[in-house]
């Protein structure tokens, strides 16, 4: 026994724990926690690019409250998030169920399906940009040749069409994520559950309704929380496809915040818009957190 030597001291879990946490915690505190607070503070200043801000209270928010573009961006963000999430969930669940069936080349298919998710969003968005081109769109070309329409569709030029087009691109990117995560959830459901249900006389729909959905609901809650958060704060797709246009019809809060702050130079106002997103995000997180708590029993999960 050589008392509390350096080695013994390092074997103390609290000391060692703090030491191990240090690098990660330092980076996160400096580059995540601090800027989070700084962002909120900037929202109450009139900071401009290249000039420190003065405290102006809630002036930015008052100004935004009367700003029709900001209001429109809130509406757009909700529309974009809700519509895209619902479609992603529906298609994702369907695709997951298809991939969970008895299939040849199953793992190959699964790998292929995930491609849209792993390719840089900006780069795939460029492909959509080209597909949506007003003059050379391949979709329009096909529809015209099929005789379904007479003239080319101006996908990104008309407000509602632009909204639908950006949502479609977002769905394209998000469906694989939802599908593969739900597939992982489906694979944890023991086949004996279905065998028992089949012997109990359940139809495929009843099996889906009474076995699959309840067993899957915890993972659905998590996956959809992520999906909603990422959709709500989306920036890349819109920036590439429309930059918020036409006439601000596709401006999301994230893109508006960028536009006001960086090219526009109004850092304070941009920060205020970004800060305005936080309550919505918190609401989404809390909603799913309590949803999960309630559902934990269904997986027989341990309480910790």
């Amino acid at each position: 026994m050589n008392g509390r030597s350096l080695g013994g001291w390092l074997d103390n879990r609290n000391v060692l724990g703090m030491l191990f946490m240090l690098p990660g915690a330092a980076i996160l505190v400096v580059f995540l926690t601090y800027p989070l607070g700084l962002g909120v503070w900037l929202g109450f200043t009139d900071a401009k690019v290249g000039r420190g801000g003065e405290w102006i209270g809630i002036e930015n928010y008052q100004w935004l409250w009367d700003d029709s573009v900001f209001r429109l961006s809130i509406f757009n963000t909700f529309l974009y998030t809700v519509v895209a999430s619902v479609i992603k969930f529906g298609l994702g669940l369907w695709l997951a169920l298809l991939l969970n069936r008895h299939l040849p080349f199953k793992s190959f298919l699964r790998a292929i399906v995930l491609l849209p998710f792993i390719v840089p969003t900006v780069l795939s968005a460029i492909a959509f940009w080209w597909i949506y081109d007003a003059q050379f769109s391949v979709v329009s070309w096909t529809l015209v040749k099929l005789g379904l329409i007479d003239e080319y569709i101006n996908f990104l030029g008309e407000p509602n069409l632009a909204r639908a087009s950006t949502i479609a691109a977002n769905v394209w990117r998000g469906v694989p994520f939802v599908a593969i995560c739900l597939l992982a959830g489906l694979q944890t459901i023991s086949p004996t559950m279905y065998e028992a249900a089949a012997i109990d006389g359940a139809t495929p729909w009843q099996q889906f309704r009474n076995v699959t959905l309840p067993m899957l609901s915890p993972i659905i809650a998590v996956v959809m929380t992520f999906s909603v958060l990422f959709t709500f704060t989306d920036f890349q797709l819109i920036w590439v496809l429309t930059r918020g246009g036409p006439i601000n019809a596709t401006h999301l809060m994230a893109t508006l915040s960028f536009q006001r702050a960086i090219p526009g130079g109004a850092l304070g106002e941009g920060a205020a818009i970004a800060t305005a997103m936080i309550p919505f995000l918190l609401a989404a997180i809390l909603f799913s957190y309590f949803g999960l708590q309630r559902r934990r029993w269904q997986q027989g999960g341990r309480d910790n």
């Binding site: 879990r13 703090m18 996160l28 700084l38 958060l229 920036f235 994230a254 960086i262 997103m277």
Partner: peptide, 27 residues
């Protein structure tokens, strides 16, 4: 290591994961 407060820190890490870049880029 389960040091004091590790549970809370674990939760904080999860929350940090949910902070989107689009509200951090300005600060």
């Amino acid at each position: 290591l389960r040091f004091k407060g590790s549970h809370q820190i674990g939760l904080a890490i999860f929350l940090a994961y949910l902070v989107p870049p689009s509200i951090l880029f300005i600060p």
